[in-house]
């Protein structure tokens, strides 16, 4: 048993117009510290649901199974406690916060997490210094910091903003939910560089994607295929290439 992330027999459902609909049907997954795992799979297989359940979204009801994260019961924690513990979710569709200044949001988040982790809060000067260094690394303009959170951002800008938040919040487990979809090659590269820059023996990532290309840059330790709410097949980085050529058909047959 790994003491980092251990998902065992996870079942979860959502209320779909009054009728409960089971989406996760027994997910088992172990991620060791320092590893990057990819999850691939057809639409509707439960990939995004898995990321939401890990991050603590309340719409989903966990009916059985367990998730331990660094020895703690992750499912018993509030979303903000999970964030403080090191879980970061890069949203597939980042949310707009009208009127909320991006830099102010980022600083509030960074300091909330720092407080919870027992670190000193960053003052305005220290924060600006850190954030400027991060934006530069991600080839983002400072102008983006002055705008309102995700409001009027292009698809690419939103994803980059997610990576900026990830960089600033220094998670130990980053979950990227199709962060690469809709990105051009250059933007894809920036996202991959952002993840790679964080790589260390104390940083792990769970990358949900449809495309081989992002994985070329990330070179994952493990690749999993998810179908009908379960992980049906796992392999090394070469599995992604196989899927790229053959599609999911053979794995779906396996799962049925």
């Amino acid at each position: 048993m790994s003491d980092f992330l251990n998902i065992s027999g996870l079942h979860a459902r959502i209320d779909a117009d009054g009728a409960p609909k089971e989406i996760l049907r027994g997910v088992d997954l172990i991620i060791a510290p320092g590893e990057v795992h990819a999850i691939m799979g057809p639409n509707g297989s439960g990939k995004s649901t898995l990321s939401y359940v890990l991050a603590g979204r309340e719409d989903y009801e966990v009916t059985s199974g367990s998730v331990s994260f660094k020895g703690q019961d992750l499912l018993a924690m509030e979303p903000e406690e999970r964030a403080a513990a090191g879980v970061f979710l890069a949203f597939q569709a980042p949310i707009e916060l009208p009127g909320v200044n991006n830099a102010n949001f980022l600083r509030t988040a960074v300091n909330a997490v720092r407080r919870a982790r027992g670190d000193a809060e960053l003052d305005a000067v220290a924060f600006l210094k850190t954030v400027r260094a991060a934006t530069k690394k991600l080839s983002m303009s400072d102008e983006m910091l002055k705008r309102n959170v995700n409001v009027g951002f292009s698809g690419g800008e939103k994803k980059r903003n997610e990576v900026l938040q990830m960089t600033m919040l220094q998670p130990s487990l980053a979950i990227l939910d199709e962060t690469d979809s809709g990105l051009d090659v250059d933007a894809l590269r920036i996202v991959a560089d952002g993840v790679n820059a964080l790589r260390s023996p104390t940083f792990s990532a769970l990358v949900i994607t449809h495309h081989q290309r992002l994985l070329d840059y990330l070179n994952p330790d493990r690749v999993h295929v998810m179908a009908r709410g379960r992980i049906v097949h796992s392999g090394g980085a070469e599995l992604a290439k196989e899927i790229d050529v053959q599609g999911y058909a053979s794995f779906l047959a396996e799962a049925a």
């Binding site: 903000e80 403080a84 916060l97 909320v100 949001f105 509030t108 988040a109 909330a112 997490v113 919040l169």
Partner: peptide, 24 residues
């Protein structure tokens, strides 16, 4: 709920999230 969850996922408490959104 999306906005609340987004803020809380970034480490903000519910009260702080409401405060931030309302002030915005």
């Amino acid at each position: 709920e999306d906005q609340m969850f987004y803020c809380r996922q970034r480490g903000l408490s519910e009260e702080d999230a409401v405060g931030l959104i309302v002030n915005g």
